[in-house]
Write a protein that binds this DNA or RNA. Structure first.
Length: 222
DNA sequence: CTGGGGAAGGGGCCC
DNA sequence: TGGGCCCCTTCCCCA
């Protein structure tokens, strides 16, 4: 069973921020990541924000780096950049090719891969927020949203960057932070050709004077 | 205007 | 059916 799970993760997609090694991080920092066993380098696995091009990993090693930072906040784990950008395969892309019947919401017409997903979605129509914070009273639709919210009260930051030591309460925020370590800026403005490391930066740029009032589309620098 | 981080929402999938 | 974990995305705020 454990082996099957392991194999399953082997087939999962992953991505990696390019340019990081040569342009940004300290050698020692990268070595920490290398210890995780990943053989990938920027030359062989380019991170593509459109997620159109994934490569199969040759090595299953990932997860956590050897580094451990204990800053002001309690950091449970620290993640190297290569380890961090290897997913466990539960990404939204993994089920796209299944071709299963979609489940449609009778209220809004949105479709979902599973009945469970549809059921969960329907809760957003009823506004049934049954997961309530004991501290501030704020309610959430899902338990893990409450968990993440509680970290804002406790100051817990389980996700640490193995390269700079900064810790985050949210994994996605750490992921975004990892991209700031990359010297390559994958998102390019179609009008002025300025490039940005994060898509959100580009979107903000689009809302700036450069692109105000005209059509735009996200372009990815190749 | 850009860069960065915090917080939250919601879909995919597994158990 | 629902919890839990994954992911991406967006919004907001601040330097």
């Amino acid at each position: 069973m454990i082996f099957l799970k392991f194999v399953s993760r082997l087939s999962n997609v992953f991505y990696f921020v390019t340019g990081y090694v040569d342009h940004c991080i300290t050698p020692s920092g990268y070595e920490v990541g290398k210890k995780s066993g990943s053989k990938f380098s920027s030359s062989e696995t380019d991170y593509t924000p459109t997620h159109d091009d994934y490569s199969e990993p040759d090595s299953p090693q990932s997860s956590l780096s050897a580094g451990y930072f204990s800053g002001e906040a309690a950091v449970t784990d620290s993640y190297s950049i290569d380890a961090f950008f290897i997913t466990d395969g539960r990404s939204r892309r993994s089920g796209e090719n299944r071709g299963n019947q979609r489940h449609t919401c009778s209220e809004c017409g949105k479709t979902y891969a599973t009945s469970s997903n549809l059921s969960r979605h329907k809760q957003t129509h009823t506004h049934n927020l049954k997961h309530k914070c004991d501290v501030c009273g704020k309610a959430f639709s899902r338990p893990w949203l409450l968990q993440g919210h509680m970290r804002s009260h406790t100051g817990e930051k389980p996700f640490g960057c193995a390269h700079c030591g900064k810790a985050f309460a949210d994994r996605s925020n750490l992921r975004a932070h990892m991209q700031t370590h990359s010297a390559f800026k994958h998102y390019k403005c179609k009008r002025c050709e300025k490039t940005f490391a994060l898509k959100s930066y580009l979107n903000k740029h689009y809302e700036s004077a450069c692109f105000k009032g005209s059509e735009h589309e996200c372009d990815v620098q190749s």
